[in-house]
Design a protein around this nucleic acid. Sequence first.
DNA 1: CTGGATCCATGCCGATACTG
DNA 2: CAGTATCGGCATGGATCCAG
Lengths: 109, 109
Amino acid sequence: MEKNICGVKKALSVIGGKWRIDILWHLAQHSNLRYNALKRALVGITNTTLNRSLNELLAYQLIHREQFDVSPPHVEYSLTAEGKKLIPVFEIINYLGLEMVQKKDTFSC
Amino acid sequence: MEKNICGVKKALSVIGGKWRIDILWHLAQHSNLRYNALKRALVGITNTTLNRSLNELLAYQLIHREQFDVSPPHVEYSLTAEGKKLIPVFEIINYLGLEMVQKKDTFSC
DNA sequence: CTGGATCCATGCCGATACTG
DNA sequence: CAGTATCGGCATGGATCCAG
């Protein structure tokens, strides 16, 4: 009866980018992070890309943005409940990915 | 202690393309398919893209290619054992994806 | 029927510079 | 500190033609 996998495509449209998984993962590890902490963690990312990614994830309500107007002002990002649901899935995919490429490889991280 | 998610990136490098998920999914539904059957199922795909995707999946040993030199000759593709391991994962991601985007959306399939 | 080769199009990502 | 704007490159996907 041919189920479709529309959901997979949706999911990939959210987590399929180059950095989004990394962002979600770091947030999962640290519960909340400031903008610059994220930027430091994601070695090589630029402001443009980090902001773009954060906005996309915000739009999908996977992360939460909280602004502190104290001095000096800062912003903290954290996973929403929706975002946290992703963690076990990442772990499955991770295991799978490690298995997939273990024999043949030129793939380096 | 900061586990990394190298496996997720590997996995995405395999299933992250525009059509690869579709191909795997159709193979999962039909157990084996000929080249043209796949092409018919994947509405809109071109030869170039289909071949490129098939070759990539072959390289990762997720699908199997069997050639029949009868007349007219044809080729059949099927999932390998490795490829079949992906099916339950797709279902998880699918469920997840459907949930993620159910409230807000402009996303159409 | 199957699929390689070549060229073209598009979209994601990044560098740089600038703002509240 | 936390972004935005603009511009450009590069990777990936597609169209078309051709071959075993």
